[in-house]
Design a protein around this nucleic acid. Structure first.
Lengths: 351, 351
DNA sequence: CGTGCTGGTGAAAACGTTTACACCAGCGCC
DNA sequence: GGCGCTGGTGTAAACGTTTTCACCAGCACG
């Protein structure tokens, strides 16, 4: 319980190395390495001496030295559009925890939902020679970032992206199916004029797939299909402008491409003097926790974000360890429609 | 635009090294290093040859090799209680962006609001020999994690923590003053019975300071002071149990130790059949963006979370570069009371 | 009593950088 | 014309590990 005294002056004292331990234990560094990593045989007596020296000197092997000789660090790099979107934060939390348990540290990078930024975001990660990468990119098929990772020979798992080419490790959800399910739920409540609002549409294959799913359902029901409305929710969710679509389509329901945007859409509708869900219903995707706490609660398609992070980490660690079963392995986690107070019967409709 | 073809087979091809470049440019590795880092003189002709070789071979210097010889990596480690709390996610986003601009990568770790986990969370970070660390710990004065960082001689900036001992770099806010301000706002609206709800009280010096501030204001106004109520918001914000405090104190206002918790409290009150703000007002701390989008909007004390991240990163990079002005530098960023729909006049009170 | 194996140990190379140092050519200066 | 500087270049050491290889002792086996 007694905390180690904290030196106030930041003495740049040098860390103890394997040589210090070897000297203290009166042996070679090879034996120290063998004990520390439990590789190769060491006699009981020497093992004890080394263990004592390690403890006394508080030896912590340098990952840098280790990485150099092993040609890969025990680090995994993660690229997400933004850590401030709860769905990615949840992912990241699970991913980090699983990585830590597996003895790996996690490096982060953000693309800010811009394909052009992916490269500059991922370069520093690659420079650290990580054991592997987990990426959520704008468009897997054309991603320069992914190409760089592949060129560097770094095992990579895509997260949340749509399946593009085979031979890729991927942890994702059925975005298109989710779109269909959500639209079906709206149609079932009598909605006929349904709008789709997306963030950076061009920068998210998820948003595009969800839109296509919604479109599938609309077409199947013989309902009018509107092109998606782009609403910049990144910088300033309080400036979402729905005037145009409200005037043109007079939708009774709006599907947002994710929950964060959906909450912004609800707020925007209120600014327009429209009641949710009495005038307009709203629904999103992701199932972020906060959506269930607000009033009215947010109708959404939920997927296990944290589990997607842990799964991606586990898959990557498998890949890294050579336990990579089939190299191109796609894991599609289930989604679930979660009803909420933002979704009601369409006005002027007797079901 | 033409994307580099992505090899499907994960060929573990070896990265090009400085030697490859030297061979190609017909010179020594020293000259390559000089050109890459722009250190030392190189003739125009050779400089050109090397630049060409670097480009053709797509040479990216290994940070691992560099870190080994420089004894520190261009990486900074960040420990926060949880990346899923938007206030820390915002911090992290700003921090990462500033670090990247400064040529540094960011390693993350989470303590899950448990002092006991701080050490195991930070050890892998220290093992990577980062240039510096940014920590938000449970209790700076007794933090074993902080002690480890100091023992390893790693420059450290504390974030959000309370000032403990001098000689520490710290980016924070006036938590206690914020508590006073928030309580004053409540008292000004006629509230007399004010409860304080905290998450892991023992694991957050911020929560404790905010409580003390609230207490200050209550005492100054001659109002009754209740001990804080602990509500576990980490796993399951939907199981916050307020029955006890509602029965005992019958508060007209509840202050939550942060916004995430405050939103949970609002939901819990609703489950108890109480209207917010008509029956009970609620306020929190942090000023998370989503608080302004929900209805009723959340009254809160807002601080510039993202800027705190960027500031902490900038301060750390200064420290690392030796530009560390005074070593023990505390920067207190301003806070601002942000009124919201969750805060109304106390019932049965004519102001 | 050799022969071969096995357990225990150390010496040394390798990993990819940076940088101190040495060297040489050219040039200005006395 | 010798001297000292400077610009340009290369050699080699160092950083902290892991791992291969060699070596030696002891022991079972024939």
């Amino acid at each position: 319980m007694d905390p180690t005294p904290i030196p106030t002056s930041d003495t740049p004292r040098k860390a103890t190395t394997i040589k210090d331990v070897a000297r203290r234990a009166r042996c070679s560094i090879a034996s120290v390495s063998r004990v520390v990593n439990d590789s190769g045989p060491v006699s009981g007596a020497l093992r004890l001496r080394i263990a004592a020296a390690v403890a006394e000197l508080e030896f912590r092997p340098s990952e840098v030295g280790r990485s150099l000789v092993l040609k890969r660090s025990r680090t995994i790099g993660v690229l997400v559009p933004s850590v401030t979107n709860p769905v990615f934060a949840d992912c990241l939390a699970g991913l980090q925890e699983t990585a830590r348990r597996g003895g790996h540290a996690v490096l982060i990078a953000q693309s800010n939902y811009e394909a052009g930024r992916e490269v500059e975001a991922i370069e520093p990660l690659i420079a650290e020679r990580p054991a592997g990468l987990v990426l959520t990119v704008c468009d897997p098929a054309s991603s320069e970032a992914r190409a760089r990772a592949a060129a560097a020979g770094i095992p990579t798992v895509l997260l949340f992206n749509e399946a593009s080419d085979p031979g890729v490790a991927l942890v994702t959800v059925d975005n298109r199916g989710a779109g269909r399910d959500l639209a079906a739920a709206l149609i079932g409540r009598g909605h006929r004029r349904i709008a789709f609002v997306a963030g950076r549409f061009a920068a998210s294959d998820r948003a595009r797939a969800r839109y296509e799913g919604v479109r599938d359902a609309l077409v199947a029901a013989g309902l009018p299909v509107e092109p998606p409305v782009e609403a910049d929710f990144i910088d300033g969710p309080d400036r979402i402008d729905l005037a145009d679509i409200l005037d043109r389509l007079r939708p009774t329901a709006i599907v947002a491409s994710n929950d964060l945007l959906a909450i912004g859409v609800v707020a925007a509708l209120r600014r327009h003097g429209l009641a949710v869900p009495d005038d307009v219903s709203v629904a999103g995707f992701d199932g972020i926790a906060i959506g269930g706490l607000i009033a009215p609660s947010l109708a959404t398609i939920a997927w296990p974000a944290r589990a997607m992070g842990t799964t991606a980490a586990a898959m990557l660690l498998d890949l890294v360890a050579g336990r990579g079963r089939e190299p191109g392995r796609t894991l599609t986690l289930p989604h679930l429609f979660r009803p909420g107070g933002t979704l009601a019967d369409a006005p002027n409709t007797s079901r």
